[in-house]
Amino acid sequence: MCGRYATTRSEADLSRLFDAVDVTEGLTPSWNVAPTDPVPLVRVSKRRGGRVLDTAKWGLVPAWAKDPRSGGRMINARAETVATLPAFAPSFARRRCLVPADGWYEWVRDGKRKQAYYMTPRDGSPLAFAGLWSMSAADVLTCSVVTTAALGGLARVHDRMPLILPPDRWADWLAGGGEPAELLRPMPPAELDRIELRAVRPDVGNVRNNGPDLITPPDPEPVPVTLF
């Protein structure tokens, strides 16, 4: 997975969708989330006794890390090693979360230029990325998105993709514990049918650009990548 995605739904919508208490103090929609940006996540709070919608800095910083800047290098955690690597294993065992998203971006090189693509559900429904959270030594909530090998035609764009969890897997993921192989199984190939691969404008390559125009097709539209 590349280091960009979109998450634009309001705290009210996300709270309702994930049956979570909102503790975010307001969310700012972003069509161009970049590493270290604040992002919404859903986690279980023992103090609240259930799910909360919270805000975290994208890029996990383990509690033992001395340099908070290390989070910029840990925006993603590979499903193949997330249960064993020291930086991620404690969070995988006890501090898992859901990261709401509208879609994510990847780039494909076409000669001397790169074409940006946006992967998003065709029906506009939200996605829930499997995530991990940690509280840094500076008491800053941070998170990482779990990635897995790209499935089907998505592998033609990038060899990695977020681990996407359907609603019937949310409770087990958030509960802590469990069998890693079961928790980290990829989405069924049939689910790929609902993911659209949309060519978008090159403006998304600049983190300072943000807005709904980033997910609209360019003009003229390039030849699409064939998924199947």
Rank of each mutant, 00 (worst) to 15 (best):
153 G>A: 03
188 P>V: 05
219 D>P: 01
136 S>N: 03
56 A>P: 12
40 P>W: 01
205 G>I: 09
128 A>E: 07
40 P>V: 01
181 A>T: 13
36 T>V: 15
126 P>K: 09
43 R>D: 00
208 R>S: 12
132 L>W: 06
65 A>C: 11
164 I>Y: 00
22 D>I: 08
136 S>Q: 07
209 N>S: 08
97 C>L: 11
154 L>N: 01
85 L>G: 03
143 C>Q: 04
107 W>G: 03
88 F>K: 00
222 P>I: 08
103 G>F: 00
116 A>M: 05
46 K>L: 10
129 F>I: 04
132 L>R: 07
8 T>W: 02
48 R>M: 15
101 A>M: 02
86 P>I: 06
216 T>P: 00
120 T>L: 10
174 L>P: 08
15 S>M: 02
111 G>C: 13
154 L>Q: 01
213 D>R: 13
124 G>S: 05
196 E>P: 03
90 P>F: 01
212 P>A: 13
212 P>I: 05
169 R>A: 13
45 S>P: 04
43 R>F: 06
190 A>S: 14
182 E>P: 00
209 N>E: 11
31 W>C: 08
52 V>K: 00
219 D>F: 06
39 V>Y: 03
89 A>E: 10
33 V>F: 11
10 S>P: 06
34 A>M: 04
171 A>K: 13
22 D>M: 09
226 T>L: 14
118 Y>N: 00
34 A>E: 09
24 T>K: 10
95 R>A: 12
202 P>L: 05
147 T>P: 12
60 L>F: 01
87 A>D: 06
61 V>S: 11
120 T>C: 04
65 A>P: 08
143 C>N: 04
226 T>Q: 14
190 A>M: 02
225 V>F: 01
126 P>A: 14
50 G>W: 09
24 T>Q: 13
197 L>S: 00
163 L>G: 09
208 R>P: 09
53 L>N: 11
17 L>C: 07
224 P>N: 05
199 A>T: 07
102 D>I: 12
227 L>C: 08
220 P>E: 07
214 L>M: 08
111 G>F: 03
66 K>E: 15
58 W>A: 08
42 V>I: 15
105 Y>S: 05
80 E>M: 12
216 T>R: 13
169 R>S: 10
130 A>D: 10
127 L>M: 15
176 G>S: 13
93 A>T: 05
200 V>Y: 09
37 D>S: 11
37 D>R: 06
50 G>L: 09
75 I>K: 02
70 S>N: 00
91 S>H: 10
119 M>V: 15
139 D>G: 00
105 Y>R: 00
104 W>V: 12
53 L>T: 08
130 A>P: 12
51 R>I: 03
